[in-house]
Design a protein around this nucleic acid. Structure first.
Lengths: 270, 270
DNA sequence: GAGTGGTCTAGACCACAGA
DNA sequence: CTGTGGTCTAGACCACTCG
């Protein structure tokens, strides 16, 4: 009754060879990997097997494939740490708030933070958002979408999307705070402008889950539609308990590490 | 330049038929699905295609397969919500703390909380834990492992593992607080006993990531080794900033929704 | 033993990128 | 046009469960 020593299959075995090379740095981020037919010949396996090898590594975030072009080593190999309870502190907010925090997160990984692709428009929010805002079924409200990308410092070609963040604001808040529709919301970001307009956020709530992406999200992130993503639902609440901002962060599930830190009241003992 | 209307393949199309049936409740949790050869005949597809259909649904957590037996509808279809910043409140702690919180989480989903499989032993901690505790490379310390399972109220056969939680304590804390090695740590749980022994936790930190499971974890959760899991690294810190408890929660990535809520200091305005 | 899921093969066909 | 990834087929072989 020794421990079960089930040996791995070809896919896992060959994948782990490549995985080791990537993690050791023998294969540089952004570099091209052998094509599937080539990989097939190198290891004497069937086409599907070679594809599965790359599929597994892709799933782990070490590799990405582009039809018609080839398969490449990912730019982001390790995990990006996001300190969720730190990034909204007032001192940081004066320096740009969550947006500045994102840049710091990227720089700490040695990446250049490419300008995000920003879309500001009135749009129909997702059902869950509309319900919280008590909006009509197909009513529109302000949406701020930011596609966050990183690249290598010396290479303008290689880009990787690491986050799609979509903020939604209730209609009356938008009316009272028109700067939200501006590209630049000034010092301290949108939360500071909202506070000045009487919608001060005193409590934040974030809910995290792993789910399948919408086709649009998969497209924006450059991942296959069947690959699950990490979703953070960020809500900002006023002292009255009203939700005045909802931001959906969609992340490649393998590239992030989210940290939360809080104090607990302790019982009388000790 | 209309919107790209790329039609889904057979796998996605047939999978979504089954997915709909499961989500509508037409296929009951725990019920057996047609075998792969049967599914193959029903839809006139190849063996691999039928397997891929179940593979996709399995990836989404709607279905699980057992070699030699068959494929079944998962017991847990929706997401289990875990309110991470609530579950360690002192009032809750008196009623059993995090363990009681887990039971409440399950009951709110209509599940019966089967007794966890508990293993208490001295063991070599993972490298990351050993480093934080500044322990020697292969030194052992106390491990409390709990395999959390849920089942249906009327069925003793169907069981699903929804969490493997492994707590590690530093050697000197274990010496000062021998009750940690007991099965029942009493009112308020281990954190209360540690507070009484002079290791009061005043701050908690949790870090979340999605990663590949170890073979042991995949086995314990009853999932294929290549399916990624959610990992929560829970740390308890004393007023001096020392980490006196590390608990690793390994979860099936599709079955949970984690919630954090905290207050933010707001700038002077408003 | 028969029936199940799990892995792999060999090869066809398609969609897409780029010269 | 050629070469790339992506999907699907048809079938072999293995490992496991259960009667």
């Amino acid at each position: 009754m020794a421990t079960k020593q089930k040996e791995p299959g070809k896919v896992e075995r060959i994948a782990s060879e490549i995985r080791d090379k990537i993690e050791r740095g023998a294969l540089a981020p952004g570099s091209r990997l052998p094509g599937v037919p080539q990989l097939q010949k190198e290891h004497g396996v069937a086409y599907q097997t070679a594809r599965d090898i790359y599929g597994l590594l892709e799933d782990e975030g070490l590799v990405f494939s582009r039809r018609g072009k080839g398969t490449y080593v990912s730019l982001v190999i390790g995990k990006i740490v996001s300190d969720r309870t730190q990034r909204y502190l007032p001192t940081l907010r004066e320096a740009g708030g969550a947006v500045g925090a994102f840049e710091a997160e990227m720089r700490s990984m040695g990446f250049e933070n490419k300008d995000p692709v920003v879309t500001i428009a009135k749009d129909v929010p997702p059902k869950k958002v509309a319900e919280i805002y008590e909006m009509h079924h197909r009513a529109k409200t302000l949406k701020r979408e930011r596609i966050m990308r990183v690249g290598l410092p010396d290479n303008d070609e290689a880009l990787e999307v690491v986050q799609v963040a979509t903020s939604w604001f209730p209609p009356d808040v938008v009316d009272a705070c028109p700067v939200l529709a501006e590209n630049n919301t000034g010092t301290g970001g949108s939360k500071s402008r909202m506070a000045e307009a009487g919608f001060r956020q005193v409590r934040l709530r974030e809910e995290i889950e792993v789910r399948s992406p919408t086709p649009e999200e998969a497209d924006a992130l450059g991942i296959p539609a069947e690959r699950a993503v990490l979703e953070i639902t960020h809500k900002g609440l006023t002292a009255e308990g009203r939700v005045v901002e909802i931001c959906l962060h969609v992340l490649p599930r393998s590239k992030w590490r989210l940290a939360y830190e809080w104090v607990i009241d302790t019982p009388g003992t000790g």
